[in-house]
């Protein structure tokens, strides 16, 4: 009598676990089609084959939001590009330090993640034409007396792992203690908490932090003339051509301008629309 009751309980538990597992796998997981921004209800773009895109989320204002509901400059731009290609963008949250290796290995087809085009990275991936002109910013606490990058020498500085901001910090601030955080927002939080005195991070992200989270200000902008590109695996020349073509179309029809102004409250610089990039 007791044995059958135990087995019954066991069976129920097993069933519950199995259904949870199924729900977890089937439902959402990480790769979903983003809900799009603004008024769009569903992303019924050109339909067609999904385009898997890796991105390190969150990194506002380039990518943010929750699975199924990602939004941001990169997200919207990529959706527009995919539509032009007759495909539908599906985003996958990935940690930044493995993202280039991942696309090189085919985990997804493309990467859009506020990723600066660098020589080192080009050893692993190929980049599209630049789609954004950026620079680094020195983010400090409001009212801090740190006014320049050099003022941070000897102090504690934070940056995100694997970013050009971290590289800049290592290059210019030899005497400082540099703390790499797994996510950009973690570095900003450390600044607000007071455990670090400055953050070196992409200028638009810094600006976003100033506006959205408050309590911080930009001390100095460091023009690094870095440009962001969409990354694909090396040798994917056809895909890259398609992306570049689509990007051009998005720019020419004015969609690029709309998205840019929405997220940065500025007009896009003329240079970006004409820059090209030769894959090496």
């Amino acid at each position: 009598m007791r044995k059958t009751r135990l087995t019954a309980i066991f069976a129920v538990l097993l069933l519950a676990l199995a259904s949870v597992a199924v729900a977890g796998c089937g439902g959402g997981g990480d790769s979903t089609s983003s809900g799009g921004g603004g008024g769009e209800t569903s992303s019924e773009s050109g339909g067609g084959e999904p385009l898997s895109v890796g991105s390190d989320i969150p990194y506002p204002p380039f990518e943010q939001g929750k699975p199924g509901n990602y939004t941001g400059f990169d997200i919207e731009l990529m959706e527009a590009i995919a539509e032009k290609m007759g495909r539908e963008a599906e985003f996958q949250d990935t940690s930044f330090e493995t993202i280039f290796r991942d696309v090189a290995q085919g985990k997804f087809e493309a990467v859009i993640s506020a990723a600066t085009i660098t020589e080192e990275r080009e050893q692993a991936v190929d980049f599209s034409n630049p789609y954004y002109l950026s620079e680094q910013a020195v983010l400090v606490k409001e009212g801090s007396d740190i006014k320049t990058l050099k003022d941070l020498d000897g102090k504690t500085v934070a940056a995100q792992q694997g970013t050009t901001g971290l590289e800049l910090a290592k290059e210019e601030l030899g005497g400082s203690e540099i703390r790499p955080y797994p996510e950009g927002p973690d570095a900003v939080n450390a600044l607000k908490a007071g455990t670090v005195e400055g953050v070196i991070i992409d200028a638009p992200v810094a600006q976003n932090a100033v506006e959205k989270s408050g309590g911080v200000e930009i001390a100095e902008k460091v023009p690094t003339e870095e440009t962001y590109g969409i990354a694909v695996a090396q040798g994917e020349t056809e895909l890259l051509e398609e992306i570049n073509k689509a990007l051009k179309e998005v720019e020419q029809e004015g969609t690029y301008k709309t998205i840019y102004e929405k997220w940065f409250h500025l007009e896009p610089p003329k240079e970006i629309e004409s820059e090209t990039h030769e894959a090496e």
Binding site: F96, E97, R101, E120, G162
Partner: peptide, 17 residues
């Protein structure tokens, strides 16, 4: 963000792929 072995090796991963 303590610079221990895992953090360091992930940094190297990011730099060297």
């Amino acid at each position: 963000a303590l610079g221990e072995a895992v953090l360091v090796s992930r940094e190297i991963l990011a730099e060297s792929f």
